[in-house]
Design a protein around this nucleic acid. Structure first.
Length: 323
DNA sequence: AACGTCCTCAACCGCTGTAGA
DNA sequence: ATCTACAGCGGTTGAGGACGT
């Protein structure tokens, strides 16, 4: 015997809600309170199924819903929580007062996800991926400003770019390898997610290591903040997510990292994965530090800070061209 | 102005988890 | 242990507005 439908579809309205329906639902809930969604439509005089009423209330009519564009701080929180929780929209929403899971999910899919892709960051694993990097937009920004054009520099950049990008790619690949070596069945964000469920603490993941260049023998430092998050248990035992300013080595396992680096035979040496001060402020607790801004350029810049990647010295020439 | 395409987001669908009988 | 009702979740859809040609 199959499950009975949540409501009788016959004669029930679907689609956008009218102001009159909103008023009926709001009035009813203000008087009787939410809940008992199956009987609510009938009692409220609505030709809707209970599920539709519940969704309309929780996603739109609820008085505590915050409307309007997401602030940079909210986007920051969403990205960091998503790196830990994955597509657990309700869990993310529970930490963003006034925002619904549906709203966050939509915003992620239509804005944040695309922004990360544009920045060459995999929105699923939250790791840099060169194949996602939108070089065309970078080049457009250069060619769109003739004052930045320097053919000689561009030609030099091409030679450097190939080596620099290859190294960056191997770095990203290696990071992925390290994660998968330790957790072969898990994507990196899932790995972090697992650690969330094993309190009391998780620190992740400022990674920083050095590799000598084959060309100049100078030391290049790649560093980036994967996430500045830690988790702790509240006295009640509930999982309590705390965002902190400090950060530690990749996945917190120095030996594994060194081992992987050695095995990778990448001509790289591990300098340090121990905690180092992070230059970026803790945006979660410093709302006054940030002026809200609405342009995509400003938001791109903001998220570039979130995923900090220092430009290696050997790529300085390229930076000179672009900046 | 007309048309086509893209983008956004409210709403829906199908499924799972849970409580109670 | 099983069944049912219900709430909630995540993925998907489609209407309508924005934008480009």
């Amino acid at each position: 015997m199959g499950r009975v439908p949540c409501c009788d579809k016959n004669g029930l309205k679907k689609g956008p809600w009218t102001p009159e329906e909103d008023l009926k639902l709001t009035n009813y809930i203000q008087f009787h309170g939410p809940g008992n969604w199956r009987s609510l439509p009938k009692n409220a005089g609505l030709k809707r199924c209970g599920k539709s009423c519940r969704l309309r209330w929780t996603n739109y009519l609820r008085p505590d819903i915050k409307r309007g564009r997401f602030s940079l701080e909210e986007e920051d929180i969403i990205i960091q929580l998503h790196s830990i929780l994955g597509n657990k929209w309700s869990a993310i929403a529970s930490r963003l007062p006034g925002r619904t899971d549906n709203e966050i999910k939509n915003y992620w899919n239509t804005h944040i996800r695309k922004r990360l892709l544009r920045m060459g960051i995999d929105p699923v694993t939250h790791t840099p991926r060169l194949d996602l990097l939108d070089m065309s937009s970078i080049l457009r920004s250069v060619f769109g400003n003739p004052s930045l054009l320097n053919m000689q520099g561009l030609l030099r950049a091409q030679a450097l770019m190939n080596q620099g990008l290859l190294k960056l790619a191997s770095t990203a690949s290696l990071l992925s390898t390290i994660n998968n070596d330790e957790n072969p069945n898990l994507a990196s964000h899932n790995y972090v997610q697992n650690q969330v469920t094993t309190p009391p603490s998780l620190d992740s993941a400022q990674f920083q290591f050095q590799m000598p260049t084959t060309q100049t023998n100078n030391v290049e430092v790649f560093s980036g903040t994967v996430a500045n998050l830690s988790c702790s248990s509240s006295p009640s035992g509930d999982e309590n997510l705390v965002l902190q300013q400090n950060q530690v080595g990749l996945s917190g396992n120095h030996d594994a990292l060194v081992h992987s680096l050695n095995n990778a035979n990448q001509n790289m040496e591990c300098d340090s994965v121990l905690p180092t001060p992070v230059s970026s402020p803790n945006r979660l607790n410093s709302s006054s530090n940030y002026v809200r801004s609405g342009t995509d350029e400003e938001r791109d810049s903001f998220f570039s800070d979130l995923f900090e990647f220092e430009i290696p010295e050997s790529l300085d020439d390229i930076a000179d061209i672009f900046l």
